[in-house]
Amino acid sequence: MPECPVSKVAGEVAARGAPGLIGAELLKLRTLRSTWWALAATLLTGVGFGLLAGLSHRNAYPGMTPEQRAADDPLFYSLYGLTLAQLALAVFGVFAVGGEFSTGTIRTSLLAVPRRGRLFAAKMTAIAVPACVVSLLTVLTTYAAAQATLGPHAASPDEGRTLRAIAAGWLYLTLICLFAAGLSALMRGTSRALAVLLPLLFLGSQGLGNVPVARTVLQYLPDQAGMVAMHLADEVRDPAFARDYGPDTALVLVVLWTLAALLAGYLTLRRADAE
């Protein structure tokens, strides 16, 4: 490569290299209103449905048969709100990546960072930071809200199963956001990504995985695996939720889905012309 003079006039202050790129991507996220709306919606949806789930169970409890009570699982009501909160967090991932394609900002990004692998890595790292923080906050507050309204029927927080479910919820929400981000790079736009993602996450959580014939395949979809990981698909509570794998395998499945989406998104960005 020839040694051509590079301008030094523009003062150098902030970090360069990878920290500079990640900082730039974080700045992009911070300076869009959609980021704040989607993240706030994640937290509020989780807490709101956590409160409702706890309350409705508390009201239904007196009418339940002894068998139903024996098979019941307070953890289900404690974390059920997360299946809806994940939609808002996935939308955050879609806006963060798909918005660049929809608005043409991707061209400016590629001019500043022409090495597409670096751009992709910086962007995904930057998305992971708020996703990780908001996921933790959402899981904890959703759980706390449901516990408060469950009252006497609350889950025991020091039980290992509860702690594992909470940790799994944290990891699952973070990963589903990155899954959405990777998918948006693959689909190269906000609306196309949402058209794939929302049915996938919404129909799934509405019980598509419980239809007997469809279940053999659909039970392996990311949101279904997420429900197993968070102990929301409990066959003792409801036989329709019977799955062919357990919570640990479920987390591995979600990780694999996320890696696949990220890889597909990266390959698309690397290969395609930026129109």
Binding site: G11, V13, T31, V113
Partner: peptide, 13 residues
Amino acid sequence: RWLARTHGISAAR
């Protein structure tokens, strides 16, 4: 600002 950040260019610039 985000463009500047990728190259360590100052806010003054």
